[in-house]
Simulated assay, not measured.
Amino acid sequence: MRVPPHLFLAFDPGIKPAEGGLPGLDVLKSTVNSINLFAIIATVGALCVSGVVWAWGHHTGSHGSEAKGKQGALVAAGCALLLGAANGIVAFFSQVGTSVH
């Protein structure tokens, strides 16, 4: 007997995230937290450098440097936003994903 393909879409494998399911979960969380901290510190440095380039370009009349400094400041601000909101973004889309049936 041949099963219609649309019936395969209704199969629920029953997979759900479980806290503490694997050994080393605490080490992984600690590692990701450390990487996030390192990235935030690097972003602060990038914002400082971009601000210096922006100011230097403005005061020397170098419009290209001024534009690159502004661009770097915006990119650093966007990175800071994403790094700070990473948990919330993942939690939001994970919750949206669980509501898909």
Rank of each mutant, 00 (worst) to 15 (best):
M1C: 13
M1T: 12
M1G: 15
R2Q: 15
R2W: 13
V3D: 00
P4I: 03
P5T: 06
P5I: 00
P5A: 13
H6N: 10
L7N: 00
L7W: 02
L7C: 00
L7P: 03
L7K: 05
L7E: 12
L7I: 01
F8G: 03
F8W: 13
F8N: 11
L9F: 11
A10F: 02
A10C: 02
A10M: 02
A10Q: 04
F11D: 06
D12I: 10
D12H: 08
G14Y: 01
K16C: 00
K16F: 10
P17V: 09
A18F: 07
E19V: 11
E19N: 05
E19S: 04
G21I: 04
L22R: 11
L22P: 08
G24D: 07
G24L: 01
G24E: 01
D26C: 10
V27S: 05
K29S: 05
T31N: 05
T31H: 04
N33G: 05
N33M: 07
N33I: 11
S34L: 09
S34P: 02
I35G: 08
N36Q: 12
L37D: 11
L37Y: 00
F38Y: 11
F38V: 14
F38P: 06
F38I: 14
I41C: 00
I41R: 06
T43E: 10
T43H: 05
V44L: 08
A46C: 01
L47P: 01
L47Y: 12
L47N: 07
L47F: 13
C48G: 08
V49H: 12
V49E: 06
S50H: 10
S50W: 05
V52A: 06
W54P: 06
W54I: 06
W54L: 15
W54T: 09
A55N: 04
A55V: 08
A55S: 04
W56A: 10
W56H: 12
W56Q: 14
H58L: 15
H58D: 15
H58N: 15
T60V: 02
G61D: 13
G61P: 07
G61L: 14
H63C: 11
S65K: 13
E66Y: 13
E66A: 04
E66L: 11
E66N: 01
A67W: 04
A67V: 01
K68R: 15
G69T: 01
G69R: 01
G69P: 04
K70Q: 13
K70V: 15
K70D: 13
Q71V: 14
G72V: 03
G72C: 06
L74W: 14
A76N: 02
A76K: 09
A76P: 00
A77S: 10
A77L: 14
A77P: 07
G78S: 14
G78Q: 06
G78A: 12
C79H: 02
L81V: 08
L81P: 07
L82I: 12
L82E: 01
L82Q: 10
G84T: 04
G84S: 11
G84L: 08
G84R: 05
A85F: 05
A86D: 08
N87D: 10
G88E: 06
G88A: 12
I89H: 10
V90D: 05
Q95H: 09
Q95P: 13
Q95K: 13
V96S: 08
V96H: 03
T98I: 09
V100F: 15
V100Y: 11
H101S: 15
H101I: 11
